[in-house]
Nucleic acid binder design. Structure first.
Length: 203
DNA sequence: GAATAGATTGTCT
DNA sequence: GACAATCTATTCT
């Protein structure tokens, strides 16, 4: 019996809201991947909202629509996975409505299921709480890569599960990470993290 | 502890 | 050809 039930899958309606609200709502939910090597899952403790054409830090800034970011333009509840810095994958959850290219970057998870497999993928010498810390690291540990771009989280092997909500007093809002080139938009408080979790990334 | 550099490749101009 | 929603190791202080 798996440590995490698959029955609590979040419905499509959960995703159909603006990226900032979705980023907050995703805290505490469980990202689960049932791969051929085994199942892994983690509790989301850090997210960032990317808010479409007006957001200088977003891939869809200025209405850009390319093969890479095409899934951002599609229906909510799908995974937008892209490759960056020559070696890392990052996974986003598409928000809002078709034609509104908003998404939420998943930045950190607390490992919940499949610890052995996660350790195997990450390599030796890493504390368990840090195995899925950082957007690139969590994709490696969860076995997420370009094959998952466009995956439907409501139906496929990659899923999001409902879990106990994170109370407001445990949520901290900060500026986003790694977007110094975004001018004024770099200062907006569009990063959400669970206070006190050992698994959040950054300083 | 802070700052810096190097890795390494898809994507877009 | 420049650069990127990163991570790690190394070199300072």
């Amino acid at each position: 019996m798996p440590a995490v039930s698959d029955s609590g899958r979040l419905p499509r309606s959960f995703y159909g809201r603006d990226a900032v609200r979705l980023a907050r709502a995703l805290l505490g939910t469980i990202l689960r991947h049932e791969s051929p090597e085994g199942a892994t899952a983690g509790r989301i403790v850090e997210t960032e909202a990317y808010c479409g054409p007006q957001d200088r830090a977003a891939h869809s800034y200025g209405g850009r629509r390319t093969p890479r970011n095409e899934v951002m333009w599609g229906p909510a509840g799908h995974a937008y996975v892209y490759f960056i810095y020559g070696m890392h994958w990052c996974v986003n959850v598409v928000a809002a409505a078709p034609g509104c290219p908003e998404a939420v970057l998943i930045r950190a998870l607390e490992p919940v299921e499949g610890l052995e497999l996660i350790r195997l993928r990450r390599g030796p010498g890493i504390r368990d709480e840090w195995l899925l810390r950082g957007p690139g690291n969590l994709c490696r540990g969860m076995g997420i890569d370009g094959r998952h771009n466009g995956a439907d989280l409501v139906r496929g092997a990659l899923t999001l599960l409902r879990a106990r909500a994170v109370p407001a007093h445990r949520v901290k809002r900060t500026p986003r990470v790694g977007i110094a080139g975004a001018g004024e938009h770099a200062r907006l408080l569009w990063r959400f993290r669970v206070e006190g979790s050992a698994s959040v990334s950054g300083k």
